[in-house]
Design a binder for these strands. Structure first.
Lengths: 230, 230
DNA sequence: ACATCCAAGGTTGCATACAATATTGAAGAT
DNA sequence: ATCTTCAATATTGTATGCAACCTTGGATGT
């Protein structure tokens, strides 16, 4: 047996993988800003490695869509336009429901327990959101974990990779900051309903709740002009 | 104006991009076989470059899913298992219909003309398939072009990239060799019907024909056991 | 015969030097 | 003043040497 899954290669830490992860983290937490060029020599000296592993890490990040490279000019953090947001949402709206549908027929007992646990924790935090300032951040983190576990349970590694690289890009700086209590409660109710659909053995139900879940979130960020306002 | 789309970077030919394209081509045409290790020194000397651009090209190909890398052991062509086929088909079955749906609302007149042209050529070739030995290969090539144009018309660059890298991997060595005349004609009819749906202004119709198109092709490669056989 | 250990060879990982290309800013022309 | 030219500088692209690591096969012991 020598079949090694792609991601298992990361159990061995090499300089390139370290640089890759550090840069990705810095993009996510805003240390590197949109359109900022990453100079190979600067990154190399900061991380105490030579340019070689930096170049290799940059090239990976370009392939994954975090940076864009221009020959002989360098690599810079991709700027996030309205079109990018639309593209990613279009993809997410078919990929995550697919993941949920696949997961519902084959999820393990222990994974399901983890999801129930996460849902409960988020529900508790939701009711504390007015008194506890850190609640929103905690919920965002647990929410990521909820979606991640669900996606892994789809038993489709390519799908998981796509959602990791394509979708996560859009989650930078996005949290539950502008959810009011009603919207938060609906979001939590969606999580619970997905679990109920799985228990009921209805992949279509689960899939459509996920779709509603994403569309509801989208509607909050891009309010529709036709909304009744009086 | 200095916004340069990611893929435009390839207008400048660098050694790394050359090596990348050559290796990808060699994987597609079978020069490199499944599980075969690509030794950096071998590739370098064959293509008359140093190991550096080879290493960078290999890393890109790993990110794109053509190769898998194991630290300190090398990169090899990914072996294609039944699970891989399933994973890719699951993805394709949501991504290509999405592409068609998006394309139908915004495709340009000239793109549409190209598609009609391709469909006509394929239809003509279909009726010659018994007398002209090259017909099947010509159809396969035109078919790729048909799908490619349709996908580009979706105006979603990420979607196009995904289909290029995720799906094309599965098209290696797959053509219309085992289509009988009836199946070929249905396939051609699907192409035509997609165009009709676009003309009629019905994205849902177009989307569902594409889904049928993919499922019909799949059924040919993986015949269902419950098929009536007498 | 079988397992273990170890050394030699091979391959990748990283650092450094140099080449090629792009950017920048100042000098000169209009 | 504005534009063009061009050389200096910065940055990326490539080659090469060495270090780290893995694989392999034979020697050794049981």
């Amino acid at each position: 047996m020598d079949a090694i899954p792609t991601n298992a290669s990361r159990v061995v830490q090499t300089a390139t993988t370290r640089v890759h992860d550090v840069i990705k983290q810095r993009i996510l937490n805003g240390h590197y800003q949109a359109n900022e060029y990453l100079r190979e020599t600067s990154v190399a000296s900061e991380l105490n490695v030579s340019r070689t592993p930096v170049r290799e890490a940059l090239r990976e990040l370009v392939s994954e869509g975090w940076l864009e490279a221009i020959p002989h000019r360098g690599s810079r953090v991709v700027a996030w336009t309205a079109k990018d947001a639309r593209e990613v949402f279009e993809l997410r709206l078919v990929l995550e429901p697919l993941a949920v549908r696949l997961a519902s027929t084959q999820i393990s007992k222990s994974c399901f327990k983890s999801l129930e646990n996460l849902a409960s924790q988020m529900e508790t935090l939701t009711e504390q959101v007015d008194t506890n300032a850190e609640s929103r951040n905690r919920i965002a983190s647990l929410n990521h974990e909820f979606h991640r576990i669900l996606i892994l349970a789809s038993n489709n590694q390519r799908l998981a990779n796509l959602l990791e690289n394509v979708v996560r890009t859009s989650i930078i700086h996005r949290n539950f900051g502008n959810y009011d209590l009603a919207n938060l409660r609906r979001s939590m109710r969606h999580h619970r309903e997905i679990l109920e659909a799985i228990t009921a053995g209805s992949p279509e139900w689960a899939e459509n709740v996920m779709r509603a879940h994403l569309l509801a979130a989208q509607a909050l960020h891009v309010p529709h002009p036709n909304m009744p306002s009086g």
